[in-house]
Design a protein around this nucleic acid. Structure first.
Length: 292
DNA sequence: TACCAGGTAAAAA
DNA sequence: TTTTTACATGGT
């Protein structure tokens, strides 16, 4: 299979980052972390494979099935691996912090991966509202199997058109509430018509993205912040009312108990403008610790 | 079995 | 205006 070398801008540790995301996915644990991601290249479903290149931690090898030219795969890989997030200023700031300092040295080069499709991210955000991550994962899985395409065992998220045309009945059958089915279909319709310019969001400042999302039905503060940090890797975006974040911030920066969203804001204030990344590092440290 | 889980809109007070 | 309530599935 044709494969291409790619050097990501350091600091970046692919094996650590891929290992982290793979620890959430059920199934086989391989000796070498291989990230398989369903993506679309000019609308066609493709599975892209990213693995360590050996040598520097920031170097990877990418390939795809069916094969696609490097000019198509490389930008997708850069996006999925969040290359645009520069960790250096975060690390400089964290060094002065009692908790984040040692923790960042331990997790040096860690970044979250993100879906290639912002529509997939938006759907995931809506699905995850209120219910547990396990429940949401199972619903998202049904959505992708019902409406997406399979490539060699990996499922590729559907295009906006498919979800825009879906019946509420079929969406609900995936386990979504009636409301969420409407939110997802409405959002897909906006994406399809261009009323919501998803690609355009990538270049717009945080506050403009917030305004654009908050005016859409189904998008409250939590969903908007979550989309910013997870979907766009905006380093300061912080869903302070998120249960997971309130728990983890209380554990690492408070007295151990879950704290209020106001306390989350206060405790992470020294990490501005990297509060979202800081919260991610706390969460990652907690999750990786639990595995052992 | 009941209750909570990485919320939100809409109804009721 | 502020406060309740309905909603979906999975884990404990």
């Amino acid at each position: 299979m044709k494969s291409y070398d790619l050097s990501l801008k350091p600091p970046y540790n692919f094996a650590l980052s891929a290992g982290f995301v793979l620890s959430f996915r059920s199934g086989q644990k391989e000796a070498e972390p291989v990230l398989r991601q369903g993506v679309r290249v000019e609308g066609k479903p493709v599975v892209i494979e990213i693995r360590p290149a050996g040598g520097p931690a920031s170097r990877v090898v990418i390939s795809s099935s069916p094969p696609r030219p490097a000019s198509k795969l490389v930008p997708i890989a850069r996006w999925v691996l969040s290359e645009d997030l520069d960790l250096r200023p975060f690390y400089r700031l964290a060094q002065k912090h009692k908790v984040l300092g040692p923790l960042t040295r331990k997790l040096w080069g860690l970044k979250a991966t993100r879906p290639a499709s912002l529509l997939e991210m938006a759907t995931l955000v809506i699905t995850e509202q209120q219910i547990s991550l396990a429940a949401a994962r199972s619903i998202q899985d049904r959505i992708i199997r019902r409406f997406g395409n399979e490539v060699e065992g990996t499922w590729v998220f559907p295009e906006a058109e498919v979800l825009a045309d879906a019946s509420l009945r079929d969406l609900r059958r995936c386990g979504l509430s009636g409301r969420k089915a409407e939110y997802i279909r409405d959002f897909s319709r906006r994406a399809l018509s261009g009323e919501m310019d998803l690609e355009g969001l990538k270049k717009r400042p945080d506050d403009e993205v917030r305004r654009a999302l908050l005016e859409i039905r189904g998008w409250g503060p939590w969903s908007t912040e979550y989309f910013l940090i997870r979907g766009l890797a905006r380093p300061d975006a912080l869903p302070a009312d998120d249960l997971g974040i309130r728990t983890i911030v209380g554990k690492y920066l408070g007295r151990g108990q879950r704290v209020t969203s106001a306390q989350v804001e206060r405790l992470l204030e020294p990490l501005r403008p990297f509060r979202g990344v800081a919260a991610f590092y706390l969460l990652a440290h907690h999750m990786l610790g639990r595995e052992n």
